[in-house]
Amino acid sequence: MSDLPPPPPALLTDASLFLDFDGTLVEIAGTPDGVVVGEDVAPLLTRLGNVLRGGVAIVSGRPVHEVRALVAPAALAIAGSHGLEIAAVDGSIAAPDRPAALDSALDSARAFADAHPGTLVEDKPFGVGLHYRGAPETGPAVTALADELAATHELHVQHGKMVVELRLPGRDKGAAVEWLMREPLRQRTVPLFVGDDVTDEAGFAAAAALGGAGVLVGAARDTAATYRVDGVADVLAWLDAACREMT
């Protein structure tokens, strides 16, 4: 594993930009609702949307409605729930029906959390997240429960940073990139995907397959990304510099 170079500002020229949220645009918080969005984030996203002619989207594990509220008043496309729901700039959302299997998995996850203080259940439109940042020792038990519930209810297991999520199969962040790249405004661009978590690897791979690149946020690791920055502050500084260079 060798380290990767930082992305140059010119990388955004003729690009469509896909941004993870937690750990990329904002620092990861102890709980999903504890995240703090910097006052510069929404204005920066608006500037990027103008410079890239609308070719900016957030691709997150969070539901669309949460991301939309967190980045308001910036208006941009959002792929939420790891690509299971995709919202256009006009607010229309393409999403599947929520299966009853998720409600059964949610009940089991809540029973587990009740018995293991420090764990937290996140009810999403198309997934169930079980966070164990507050009880790291429960990690193996959380993983075992997720594997059991996934087999029982035919759900997909998605591992993240101190969280295991059960969600509908068939989509990931890479599929979201492929979907959004079919839009006319992105036809003559190349995709750039920026993210920090293992869930973002599918986005890196999809961007590379379409002639673009990925930017890893955080410590060096084995990755499909081509570039790397150290943290959220570096992402925001790079995007700001790119905006300035293109205007």
Rank of each mutant, 00 (worst) to 15 (best):
M1T: 14
P5H: 12
A10G: 14
L11P: 04
L11H: 03
T13I: 13
S16Y: 00
L17S: 01
L17D: 02
D22P: 04
D22M: 04
L25N: 06
E27V: 08
I28T: 12
A29W: 00
G30D: 14
T31M: 10
D33E: 12
V35N: 07
V37A: 03
D40S: 09
A42P: 13
L44Y: 00
L45S: 02
T46K: 09
R47A: 09
G49N: 05
L52S: 07
R53W: 15
R53D: 15
G54V: 03
V56G: 03
I58P: 01
G61I: 01
P63N: 12
V64R: 07
H65D: 13
V67S: 03
R68C: 05
V71I: 15
A77C: 11
G80D: 09
G80E: 06
H82R: 01
G83Y: 11
G83K: 00
E85D: 07
I86S: 09
A88H: 15
A88Y: 10
P96T: 03
R98L: 06
A100Y: 01
L102G: 04
D103S: 13
S104E: 12
S104I: 08
D107Q: 14
R110D: 10
R110T: 07
F112K: 02
F112Q: 03
P117G: 06
G118V: 06
V121Y: 02
P125W: 01
H131D: 06
H131Q: 07
H131C: 06
Y132R: 00
R133W: 10
A141V: 13
A141H: 15
A144H: 11
L145Q: 02
D147C: 08
A151E: 12
E154W: 07
H156N: 13
H156L: 15
Q158D: 12
H159E: 10
H159F: 15
G160F: 01
V164S: 08
L166V: 06
L166K: 12
L168Q: 10
R171T: 12
G174M: 07
A175G: 15
A176Y: 10
M181Y: 08
E183W: 13
P184R: 05
P184C: 03
L185K: 12
V190M: 10
V190L: 11
V194M: 14
D197I: 10
D200R: 01
G203T: 03
A205D: 06
A207M: 04
G211L: 09
V215I: 13
G218L: 06
A219C: 09
A220D: 10
A224Q: 15
A225N: 04
T226E: 15
V229Q: 02
G231W: 08
D234F: 00
V235H: 07
L236Q: 07
A237V: 04
W238T: 10
D240L: 06
A241M: 02
C243G: 03
M246Y: 09
